[in-house]
């Protein structure tokens, strides 16, 4: 009935493998989401007006609907439009799209938050657009957006649990399976919660550390 230590030891390799899938999907989904989100934000800010409008709809659609429904649509609806994906690919694609929508809004808020004068100063000393973006805007945004980016990335980790519903072999699915096998749900999910909690706390501790390292770059009073 209960989860004894032997069981944990017995299934530790399974759990570790599933944890690996979770972390891999999380990191890959976040990295891709960050990148695609950045491209969307740049296109919306610096591209033509119509592109901004064209990208508004999909971003708001993603942000306005549950991740679960998006995943269902992609995984179960995909084959009907010739998009048959295995669960891991569908999961990663879903995470990327979902993350890109949210990250793009964060990037956009970063563009807005940088004082116009900092860009003008760069123009005045002759930096061109790419140089300004690379040397001034991006580094400034990094420190400005760090807390919200860390939050979003933590959210991404928690969303990976939802992928268990389309049977991606990640942590939540592995623990649920064990729970079913030994009817030890409470113990299983309690330990599962602790694992996620530890990961989230580690991630936010890392974020706080990075923030404290960057704190001296905080905006000077002007």
């Amino acid at each position: 009935m209960t989860f004894d230590l032997d069981l944990i030891v017995l299934y530790l390799p399974d759990i570790v493998r599933a944890l690996g899938v979770t972390i891999l999907l999380w990191l890959a989904g976040s990295a891709l989401g960050l990148l695609v989100g950045f491209l969307i934000a740049v296109a919306r800010r610096y591209g033509p007006r119509w592109l901004d409008w064209a990208l508004l709809a999909p971003v708001e659609l993603i942000r306005g609907t549950p991740f679960l429904v998006q995943i269902f649509l992609l995984y179960y609806g995909g084959p009907f439009i010739g998009l048959s994906l295995d669960s891991i690919t569908a999961g990663l694609l879903g995470l990327t799209i979902y993350g890109a929508a949210y990250y793009s809004e964060l990037w956009r808020s970063g563009f807005v938050a940088i004082p116009k004068g900092h860009v003008e100063a760069a123009q005045c000393v002759g930096l061109n657009r790419t140089q300004t973006l690379r040397r001034i805007i991006l580094p400034e945004m990094t420190m400005l957006l760090l807390p919200s980016m860390v939050n979003m990335t933590i959210l991404m980790l928690k969303e990976t649990a939802i992928l268990s519903i389309i049977s991606v072999p990640e942590l939540t699915l592995a623990v649920s399976a064990l729970g079913t096998k030994y009817y030890a749900f409470v113990e299983g999910f309690a330990i599962l919660a602790l694992v996620y909690w530890a990961l989230v706390e580690a991630c936010s501790a890392l974020g706080r550390y990075a923030e404290s390292r960057l704190s001296k770059y905080r905006f000077a009073v002007s």
Binding site: P139, A220, S222
Partner: peptide, 23 residues
């Protein structure tokens, strides 16, 4: 500028050096 507009992620030296190196 009135608001100085120093780039906050660079030291005083970095601010002065930036355009010399990049531009």
């Amino acid at each position: 500028f009135q608001q100085f507009n120093l780039w906050p992620h660079m030291t005083a030296l970095g601010n002065v050096t930036e355009a010399l190196v990049t531009v």
